[in-house]
Design a protein around this nucleic acid. Structure first.
Length: 559
DNA sequence: AAGGGTCGCGCG
DNA sequence: AAAGCGCGCGACCCTT
């Protein structure tokens, strides 16, 4: 059963109940204040709630203590189905751009500064263009039904929508964050906080030391230009101020300079200003953008939740009587590639052990490190260095897997689109890309034109090579979270306040905040959900997705 | 002063 | 050792 919710111009809501055949069987006209109770009452039947955008509808329900099991996020689904090669012949894909494309773009855009209500106004319908979510839902259903692999798209839409529920629940619950621990980390590293956002003592002392050693009294070490000039004036042969270039230079200024850069980064990116902006009432609330990356990975908008540096993870501490269960999927992308390619040899290598270790044990390369760089290089399209040199050995050991990514690269170079496991489709290259290719194919093209076109084609090939793996891995992670979310709700009383719930997600890693006594069961559910995600994507093909799972008090202890 | 481009670095 | 994929973000710096 589906229930489609539509906001009326008067602020009320029209709820349309669809039966299993997607025929409308009931309509309820709700006043603005009736929605919460309606959803609460009907959720017991576990319908799939169909709404324009989860970020538009769900926060108010969560605030009122109402969770839902399932939804269809029409905006997210619209974007997937409009772009997928699997639905390219559908009416949905062929219709001109409309209001649903606007909404899809808005929910993917960075959130406005606090207070700007853009996201929450998106489906206040302009009088001339009503949203008509029932019609949109029917168009989406028809597109999926007419596709060559409807099951894959159905799963993708369900997983993406479940992800949207998770993102809102994480924002609502927040990641437990102890401001005083964070402050202690900062003070230990930087010295006490200085007034007015000025640099703290430790940074100032290092800056003074750098100026003296470079004999550059007025130097601002935060300015790359000034710093590079000062380094060169002091006789250092460097072409940039990057730390990996500086690291190999012999000079007494290098050590204090690298420490300065490290502390400066901590101060500017995750210092006291960040703490005051993003942590309130003991919670950090990440601003996730579901499907914000072309590959379907999540992005963030503000707060930098996907870049939390290791050195401040000590501040993430479970509440008293609670624990954090932190899990990450080991070598997720190569294992997803294994499933995509149906590469039996690679599946065998990864079964029950570290994939890279068994590549070494099989005599393919000499060390775990080599196995890892070779694998990453194969998936990223390395052209130089150890990674490119070792790739042929991987190709002999795992021919099907390597052939799959090589084929994806060739398709991209031809400007063909590629697809994830479930049908998410890579974008077409932009207009300037095609112009460059066009110019190079003209009779009068110069050698430079041809070189540029070839190089650009290879760039796009590396993108599509990686797309098939990264996008499919993102789908695995969505399925993992979707399965886990439902299991966790059953374990507790269903509420976010009292029961185990997700508080963080990072591509191949999740964190659950749970009452301590439930932690062992949470660990078990995390593993079950991972196994189920593998089955959803790859059926009976025997590829393992082992996890590293840890029950800890602080995130810093998870690895 | 505001906006955009570039650099550098954090994460997977 | 530091390039080969995907990002966000803050600072500097230049243009308007």
């Amino acid at each position: 059963m589906h229930i489609v919710l539509d906001r009326r111009p008067d602020g009320g809501v029209t709820a349309t109940v669809l039966d299993a055949a997607a025929e409308p069987v009931e309509t309820a006209e709700l006043g603005a204040s009736d929605l919460i109770e309606f959803v609460r009452a009907r959720e017991g039947e576990h319908p799939r709630w169909v709404w324009s955008s989860t970020s538009r509808w769900y926060p108010a329900l969560l605030a009122a203590g109402v969770r839902v099991q399932r939804c269809v996020d029409l905006a997210l689904a619209h974007r997937i189905l409009r772009a997928s090669l699997l639905t390219a012949d559908s009416d949905l894909a062929r219709e001109p751009a409309g209001v649903w494309d606007d909404i899809a773009r808005l929910v993917a855009a960075p959130a406005m500064e606090s207070g700007a209500p853009a996201l929450f106004d998106v489906d206040e319908p302009a009088p001339s263009v009503p949203l008509d979510p029932v019609r949109e839902f029917e168009a989406q259903q028809a597109a999926v039904k007419g596709a060559s692999r409807p099951g894959a798209l159905r799963l993708l839409v369900a997983a993406e929508s479940a992800g949207a529920l998770v993102a809102e629940e994480i924002r609502f619950a927040g990641m437990p964050w102890r401001a005083e621990v964070h402050d202690r980390v900062l003070t230990e590293a930087l010295g006490p906080r200085a007034p007015d956002g000025r640099h703290p003592a430790r940074l100032e002392a290092l800056a003074a030391q750098i100026r003296e050693m470079l004999n550059a009294p007025g130097l601002n070490p935060d300015s790359q230009q000034e710093l590079l000039a000062a380094l060169r004036r002091a006789g250092l042969d460097v072409s940039s101020t990057r730390k990996w270039e500086l690291r190999d230079v012999e000079h007494p200024v290098i050590a204090p300079l690298l420490e300065y850069k490290n502390l400066y980064r901590l101060f500017t990116a995750n210092g006291w200003a960040w703490l005051e902006t993003w942590v309130h009432d003991g919670r950090f609330r990440p601003d996730y953008v579901v499907g914000g990356v072309v590959t379907g990975r999540w992005a963030t908008s503000g707060g930098g939740a996907l870049q939390l540096p290791k050195n401040i993870r000590r501040a993430v501490v479970a509440d008293p009587g609670w624990k954090l269960v932190v899990a990450d999927a080991a070598q997720l992308e190569p294992r997803v590639l294994t499933g995509l390619a149906g590469d039996q040899a690679m599946a065998d290598a990864g079964r029950g052990r570290d994939l890279y270790d068994s590549v070494v044990a099989a005599g393919v390369v000499a060390s775990r490190h080599e196995a890892k760089v070779a694998m990453l290089g194969a998936m990223y399209g390395a052209t130089t260095g150890d990674s490119a040199r070792l790739k042929p050995r991987l190709g002999r050991a795992f021919p099907k897997a390597i052939a799959l990514v090589d084929a994806a690269a060739q398709q991209g170079e031809r400007s063909d689109q590629v697809m994830s496991r479930l049908g998410r489709t890579s974008p077409r290259p932009g207009g300037s890309w095609r112009e460059v290719q066009e110019r190079a194919s003209q009779p009068g093209a110069s050698a430079a034109d041809e070189r540029r076109a070839r190089s650009q084609a290879r760039d796009w090939g590396r993108f599509t090579r990686n797309f098939v793996v990264q996008a499919s891995a993102a789908e695995w992670a969505l399925c993992w979270m979707a399965e886990l979310r439902l299991r966790l709700a059953e374990l507790g009383d269903g509420s976010l306040e009292n029961g185990p719930h997700l508080v963080f997600f990072l591509h191949d890693e999740i964190m659950v905040h749970t009452p301590e006594h439930l932690a062992p069961q949470v660990e078990r559910l995390v593993r079950e959900a991972a196994a189920q995600a593998g089955r959803l994507l790859f059926g009976t093909f025997p590829v393992d997705f082992p996890l590293q799972v840890a029950t800890v008090d602080t995130y810093a202890d998870a690895k």
